[in-house]
Design a protein around this nucleic acid. Structure first.
Lengths: 157, 157
DNA sequence: CCGCTATAGTTGCAGATGAAACTAAATCTC
DNA sequence: GAGATTTAGTTTCATCTGCAACTATAGCGG
């Protein structure tokens, strides 16, 4: 189909990684600006707060697993949240390498604020989609996720 | 529905911006590592090369529009590509502010290599999805995109 | 024409990022 | 139970990023 010197046609708009990246960045920015404006939280901070609020007490490593962020990012987000008094940190009695995270008083207050906003944002986004579309989207994302894991093992061409 | 002190349940895994972000980052990383390994190209550089290859000659501003990257990012990507000899830059005869971009000889060679890899990657990802799912996914992304634009105008809550 | 505003593109700066080195504590091995 | 290995988390460094300031050119109004 392609002679040696003819490069096949290629449209960025139709390239999945590109579309994914553009839309995701727009969503993230819109999302981040609200949390930044209301509570001065970055996305990594927001995520840490969300999982600590839901699963405390837990270790930084556990936060990594649940948020899919690397440990450096988590470490820095935690450090700032502790400095701001939103999170408390205590050494695990059994394993002194581990530092268990939990919400402080202020953290509880903020958590109670961020969850409703998250639900509202999700609802607004989901509002653009039918229930079918939403679950189809989530499902497609799961499949892509699995596929990428394979890709990493089996480089193409 | 929620008494004053009860924060509603919230699962990150089900939160659209989060899922989007995690999957996209994984896809981008997998994607970027290939182009980095094979040609030493970053994602911004890759994108610039892709649109210049398809639409040359064009201005940096035109590249911005087509890639959805901001002008600083484009400027820096272009600078590096020019330094490496992949891109040529000449002032527009009619408007001396504009610098028209085109592929250099080496750029043409690289372009001929990156497009097939892009098609292969897209095919691999799409392979995880049925044709239906793929178009559903792209369509859902378009809707989200439109929705985010609205969101920015009408802050919720 | 002359000054005012707008546009193309670059650069400076301050904050975010990830890889790799590092510290401290636990665990395994002989 | 002393040394080697692994694991939790932090720090360092080099790079990337975006905003805002800047330069250069164009176009507009009088």
């Amino acid at each position: 189909m392609t002679s040696p010197e003819t490069t096949p046609a290629f449209d960025l708009e139709d390239f999945l990684p590109y579309r994914l990246s553009v839309v995701t960045n727009r969503v993230s920015r819109a999302f981040a600006s609200r949390y930044e404006a209301a509570w001065g939280l970055s996305i990594p901070e927001w995520r840490v707060l969300a999982v600590v609020g839901a699963f405390a007490p837990l270790s930084a490593a556990a936060v990594c697993e649940r948020t899919a962020m690397d440990k450096v990012k988590v470490s820095r987000a935690v450090a700032r949240l502790v400095r701001r008094g939103l999170l408390t940190r205590r050494r695990d009695a059994g394993d002194h390498r581990v530092r268990l995270l939990a919400l402080g008083d202020e953290g509880r207050r903020v958590y109670a604020g961020i969850v409703p906003l998250a639900l509202a944002i999700d609802a607004a986004l989901t509002g653009a989609l039918s229930q079918r579309e939403r679950s189809g989207l989530l499902q497609a994302l799961d499949k892509l996720d699995a596929c990428v894991a394979d890709l990493d093992d089996t480089p193409p061409a």
